[in-house]
């Protein structure tokens, strides 16, 4: 049985955490709200969309700070990943060509779909019909192809 760890003995977060703490707190508040939101009048899968969206936003925020703006250092970035503030797997996909805007990992999981294909949101807008509005089932994405 693993040792039960209390918050007391936790190490202090690395330098620079103070700068982004407020924003992360806002994200976690939003997440809490989304978790506790009522399911009435929603489709079954629609319930989880906000969760995915907030996860995506938060991961994107940290990804931008580290890779685009270089505003936080590696130590803090690793700590954030380790503590679950960002999804490392999702970020790993963003670094690959063609996946720069990927909404969630489920949308590229071809094995889980009937025709072994990706989600509709991965289809470039050009190849869709005119005025075709989509909201993907897994995360409510309206299109995350890199060309859009």
């Amino acid at each position: 049985m693993p040792a039960i760890r209390s918050a007391r003995g936790k190490k202090a977060p690395p330098d620079g955490f103070d700068d982004i703490e407020d924003t992360l707190l806002e994200f976690s508040n939003k997440m809490k709200d989304a978790e506790n939101a009522s399911h009435e009048g929603k489709k079954k899968h629609e319930m989880q969309w906000p969760i995915f969206q907030i996860t995506h936003q938060r991961s994107r925020y940290i990804y931008d700070l580290y890779y685009e703006k270089e505003a936080i250092d590696k130590k803090l970035y690793d700590w954030l990943l380790k503590n679950g503030y960002a999804d490392a797997n999702l970020i790993a996909k963003w670094k690959k060509q063609g996946y720069e805007k990927l909404c969630c990992l489920r949308c590229i999981q071809t094995k889980e779909t009937n025709f072994n294909s990706t989600c509709i949101c991965r289809v470039p807008r050009q190849q869709l019909k005119e005025d075709q509005e989509i909201e993907c089932v897994s995360c409510g994405c309206r299109g995350c192809s890199s060309g859009d």
Binding site: D19, I20, Q57, L65
Partner: peptide, 9 residues
Amino acid sequence: VSPFTPWDK
């Protein structure tokens, strides 16, 4: 403005 603010916000 703080440079750590998200643009959306």
